[in-house]
Amino acid sequence: MNADAYDTAVRFVDTWSESVPDIASGLTCREVDALVELFCAFNRDELADQLIAAHVAEDTDPVDLHYQNETA
């Protein structure tokens, strides 16, 4: 990856990291997984965990990958 691409990716991660709690519920499981991979690639594991937690908290569709039935 060249320096410009790397700098752009870092800006993307930094910018979107501020919005994780606000956007997580509106993302599909596939979108969440893609962002988690990107965040982890830039050593933002805690942010990745926050994204999954925020997404799971709002995931009410039993066929979704991240759905967790708390009553089961």
Rank of each mutant, 00 (worst) to 15 (best):
N2P: 07
N2D: 15
A3W: 08
Y6F: 08
D7Y: 02
V10L: 14
R11C: 04
R11F: 00
R11G: 06
F12M: 12
V13I: 06
W16Q: 05
E18W: 04
S19N: 12
S19V: 08
V20Q: 02
V20N: 03
P21M: 04
A24Y: 00
S25D: 14
S25R: 11
G26K: 09
T28S: 15
C29M: 11
R30N: 12
R30W: 04
R30E: 13
V32I: 10
A34R: 09
L35K: 08
V36K: 11
V36R: 13
E37L: 05
L38Y: 04
C40F: 00
A41I: 08
F42S: 00
N43P: 03
R44N: 14
D45V: 12
D45Y: 07
A48M: 08
D49V: 04
D49S: 12
D49G: 10
Q50V: 01
A53I: 01
A53E: 07
A54K: 01
A54Y: 06
H55N: 03
V56D: 03
E58S: 13
D59V: 12
D59K: 02
T60R: 11
T60I: 07
D61I: 15
V63Y: 11
H66T: 10
Y67S: 07
Q68G: 05
Q68V: 13
Q68S: 07
Q68E: 13
N69V: 06
E70C: 05
A72I: 12
